[in-house]
Write a protein that binds this DNA or RNA. Sequence first.
DNA 1: TGTACATCAGTGAACGCGCGTTCACTGATGTAC
DNA 2: TGTACATCAGTGAACGCGCGTTCACTGATGTAC
Lengths: 207, 207
Amino acid sequence: MGNMKKYHHGNLEEALLTAGLQEAKARGPRNLGVNFLAKAVKVSPTAVYRHFLSGESLRASISQQAREELARQMLKAIATQTDVKNRFRAVGRAYINFALNEPGLFAVAFVACEEGPQREDSPSAWMVLQDSILDICNAKLIEASEVQQVASFAWATVHGFATLAGGSDPRRPKTNEKTISDLLDRTWSGIIQLGSKNSAKDKLGAN
Amino acid sequence: MGNMKKYHHGNLEEALLTAGLQEAKARGPRNLGVNFLAKAVKVSPTAVYRHFLSGESLRASISQQAREELARQMLKAIATQTDVKNRFRAVGRAYINFALNEPGLFAVAFVACEEGPQREDSPSAWMVLQDSILDICNAKLIEASEVQQVASFAWATVHGFATLAGGSDPRRPKTNEKTISDLLDRTWSGIIQLGSKNSAKDKLGAN
DNA sequence: TGTACATCAGTGAACGCGCGTTCACTGATGTAC
DNA sequence: TGTACATCAGTGAACGCGCGTTCACTGATGTAC
């Protein structure tokens, strides 16, 4: 078997997703269509519809896999860190590194899909990031009421930098160590602000 | 004249851009092609090539106009503010408001164009934001050496939030006043960090 | 243990569509004499 | 002031292409008896 030409493919669904991810790595979201991917896997376009409702849902699945790959890299980066602050930095850095090292995958991960995936992301990049914020809360550096706001802020900063730095704009930010480290420093400052929101209120006046 | 059917259109270039922006407002980047826009302006597709080298360069021009509209709204928002901090907040808020109020235009403004525009953005959203950071520097709240880093950080945060909040992700951040205000507070904290980088270094140890 | 048959996972040809772009052309405009 | 002509800005038909999707089909697989 193995190299025998088989009529039945074996695991076409997985093969399509793999081909999609490979193409995403190489060229981004441009070619993630039914005909293209069917050709890549040496299968007729019709066969795709045995495994996906439509081209759009195939794309949604590929996009989800890209997000999950991002989440895995974030988990891997966080694994070795114990300190709350370092855990957050590791998450942020992994997010940014993913965007810089795999711009195609990153773009595909966040293309606007008409159709959402039917299962939840697992692991979920958003959850990994939020968990790192919850850790900060557990360490009493922020309050429970702040968690959502902080998560939005942190996510926005990291995602924005990743998007801009990985883009084609001539004004795009530098991507050296210093810039990224500085960005995470400033993000950390924004997260804990002036200790906590309450103490900030006490120490400062209005505005 | 006026409602007379003219063979010569008059100002087809401008008409194409206007139609493109209108379509961008309504439906985003999906339909900004030669055939579609030619039809919208009631002109044969070929006529487009009298004014643009290719469909791609037409798209690049539309995208540029969208960015310039963003920049104008930022300028308008900043006009009434004198305080450095409020000027920055106004810029950031205008950026976010634009993304929320005109998601189509915002998406078009930042689509990855293969081909860059031939003239510089004018006004340029990036420059407006950077100018607001320079103001902060002039007010001695940050140092000249920090300006680029701060600009990257501020841009990333605001752009990231705008992108995520305007997207379709079910986890997307809330877009109420409180969330946005909090985001700008935290961004401000990150900008000025602990007063200035030097004083921070003095007060804190390594890491 | 072998055979009949339902089910499943593919094939291959064809569809209509919109895309960007080209061609040879023609109607309108403006300028030189 | 009128006419001839170059130039410019459009027309309309046609290209090849890749897209998503459908159709009637056939080869392979697995299960019942």
